[in-house]
């Protein structure tokens, strides 16, 4: 464990005694995500650290829980990184937003919401960033299934016929069979990992 991490840990424990935390490797896990804003604000203002620069927000999927990792640096003291992490349930994940403390969280939290579906509460404008409104699912979660782009589904057939496109019969029967079986055209065979 880094000396800086242990120092941050002791400072946090003395400064905010009701915040439960423990260290994982070189990072600090806040047991309760609700404490995140307080801890971040404390670290930003504490004269010993002055972590005024939030570098990166990463969301990650660990199957049992989702995680949000924060890398904090100090531009004033030129030190860092201090890594904070919070863990939330996969179902209805909610993490308080860091935008009130760091503006740099703005686009990164939208990105994490887009790809992992973590709802950052208090974010001023939480919308999908890369994908469009109406996209279903969160594509970087480990259970996301991609569509099979070579098989037309019933919605596609309807759309094509509405726009006056001739659809060959084989696609229609294929789509009808899929619809009758109540399936979506998903990628069936997992790909071999390539080198």
């Amino acid at each position: 464990m880094d000396t800086q991490i242990s120092e941050v840990k002791t400072q946090l424990e003395t400064g905010l005694p009701d915040v439960k935390l423990r260290t994982i490797g070189n990072s600090i896990l806040l047991e309760n995500p609700e404490d995140l804003v307080r801890a971040a604000f404390f670290l930003k203002e504490a004269p010993a650290f002055r972590l005024d620069y939030l570098s990166s927000i990463t969301a990650a999927d660990y199957l049992d829980y989702l995680e949000s990792v924060y890398h904090l640096y100090s531009m004033e003291k030129k030190t860092g990184p201090i890594v904070l992490r919070v863990r939330v349930k996969r179902e209805a994940p909610r993490v308080p937003s860091l935008v009130p403390v760091y503006r740099s969280a703005d686009l990164q939290e939208r990105e994490a919401y887009d790809t992992f579906g973590i709802v950052y509460e208090g974010h001023p404008d939480l919308r999908r960033l890369f994908l469009w409104e109406g996209f279903e699912g969160y594509p970087l979660r480990k259970d996301y299934r991609q569509e099979d782009t070579d098989v037309l589904e019933i919605a596609d057939i309807e759309w094509l016929e509405k726009h006056g496109v001739n659809v060959p019969e084989k696609f229609k029967t294929q789509a009808r069979e899929l619809a009758a079986a109540g399936k979506r055209a998903l990628s069936e065979k997992p790909a071999q990992p390539r080198n």
């Binding site: 660990y62 199957l63 979660r141 996301y144 991609q146 990628s187 065979k189 790909a191």
Partner: peptide
């Protein structure tokens, strides 16, 4: 040969 798409959920055990 390669399968159709990459499945993100190929791994079943988190580190």
């Amino acid at each position: 040969r390669y399968g159709q798409t990459v499945l993100t959920g190929k791994k079943q055990k988190a580190p």
